[in-house]
Amino acid sequence: MGEKSVQKRKYIIDKARTVFSEKGFKNVTMKDIVDACEISRGGLYLYFSSTEELFLSVLSDDIGGDDEEAVLAAVSGNATAGDMLALFLKEQKKEILRKKNNLTVATYEYFTLHKAAVSDNPLKRQFDTAVRIVEKLIETGAQSGEFYCENPLGCARNLMYVVEGLKITAGTIGVTEEAIDKELMYVLEGLVPDELNN
């Protein structure tokens, strides 16, 4: 694919992201994408054959694999596990509060309608990656005495279930920044040793 084609494909994906974030998955048609991109139907079909193919491309574009390596590299540096966990959760909070181009509702619609094999589900891969990041941060913090946790994997999963629940809540009924902070702090308070809480 030439440079011009690569740029056109990226343009279509960027415009489609906005359409999917506004309308969800099931209500989007190829005509919606054609209109948003201001291209011909044939021009769109040169790159994508269906809204499903396009949506999966949008998701693949959004779900990066470098986060885990970046966090693990940072942990091996000067930052404490607590600092890194706070930074990770700050990024999650931004994603929860993001109104524009938020694909949460569309993503859950898609995977409700299309029961993809578990190994093919990019949402599951993203969740599992986040759990591994949090688990590593909790383990590192527990080793340094910053945290107390007998089950880092269970705690990491619990924290990410809370984050995912907040994403859905934000995209459906709404959630305040204060409510997000309270829910995340409730989970994190369980990690701090009692002597540091007093």
Rank of each mutant, 00 (worst) to 15 (best):
F48A: 03
S49W: 02
T51P: 03
T51I: 14
E52F: 10
E53C: 05
L54I: 11
F55T: 10
L59C: 08
G65R: 05
V71R: 00
A73V: 14
V75A: 15
S76E: 05
N78R: 05
G82L: 06
D83P: 02
A86N: 11
F88E: 11
L89K: 01
E91L: 07
E91V: 06
Q92N: 08
K94E: 15
I96E: 02
R98W: 10
N101G: 10
L103V: 12
L103D: 09
T104H: 11
A106D: 04
Y110D: 00
F111H: 01
T112E: 11
T112L: 08
L113A: 14
H114D: 00
A117S: 01
A117P: 00
V118H: 02
S119V: 01
S119G: 03
N121C: 03
N121T: 00
P122N: 09
F127C: 13
F127T: 13
A130H: 05
V131Y: 10
L137N: 05
L137T: 07
T140M: 05
A142P: 14
S144K: 07
C155S: 10
L166V: 15
A170N: 03
G171M: 08
T172A: 14
G174A: 13
T176Q: 07
T176S: 15
E177I: 04
E178T: 13
